[in-house]
Simulated assay, not measured.
Amino acid sequence: MPQLSRRAFASGLPLGLIGGSLLGSGLIGGGPASALAATQETAAAASAVPVSVTPLAQIRIGRFTVTALTDGYADMPYTFFPGRSAAEVEQAATAQFTARPSGVRIVFNQYLVEDGGRRILIDAGPAGSIGQTGALPQAFNALGLQRDQIDAVIVTHMHQDHMGGLIADGRNNYPKAELFIDRRDVKHWTDPAKRAGAPDYLQTSFRMAGEVVRLYPRLQAIDGEREIVPGISIVDLTGHTPGHIGVRIEDGGQSLIMVSDMLFPVVHPGATDVFFVFEQDQAAARAMRERFFPRAASEGALIAATHMPFPGLGRIVDDRGHMRWQVADWAYQG
Rank of each mutant, 00 (worst) to 15 (best):
T70P: 08
A8C: 14
R119M: 03
R6S: 14
H240T: 06
S25H: 12
S255Y: 02
F276K: 06
D318G: 12
G117K: 11
F310H: 13
I61M: 02
R195M: 09
A99S: 11
A124W: 00
M208F: 06
R60P: 07
P2D: 01
Y73C: 10
E227S: 15
T241R: 03
E250Q: 02
D261I: 10
R118V: 08
G210K: 06
L237M: 03
A284L: 11
M323Q: 13
R315W: 13
L15R: 10
I303D: 04
V213L: 10
P230H: 05
T238R: 04
Q326K: 12
P311E: 14
R207T: 14
Y216V: 09
D223I: 13
G12R: 03
Q282F: 06
H307E: 15
F180P: 01
R218M: 03
H159W: 11
A74T: 11
G144I: 01
R183K: 10
R84M: 14
A296W: 01
E290G: 05
G26T: 03
T156M: 09
W330Y: 14
Q91P: 07
G197W: 07
S298E: 14
A196N: 08
V235L: 00
V53I: 08
R147I: 06
N172A: 05
A45W: 09
T241Y: 02
A124D: 01
A48S: 10
L136Y: 04
I130P: 07
Q3S: 14
A10I: 12
A8T: 15
W189E: 05
I303L: 11
H307Y: 06
P309A: 11
P2L: 00
T204Y: 10
G144T: 01
I120N: 00
P294M: 02
M262F: 02
G253V: 10
G117D: 02
T94F: 08
A283W: 00
L27E: 13
Y73T: 15
L4M: 13
L166M: 08
F108W: 10
G253Y: 01
R324Q: 12
Q254F: 00
I28N: 13
T272E: 07
R324V: 15
T42L: 14
S102V: 13
A331P: 12
F108R: 14
T54N: 05
G144P: 12
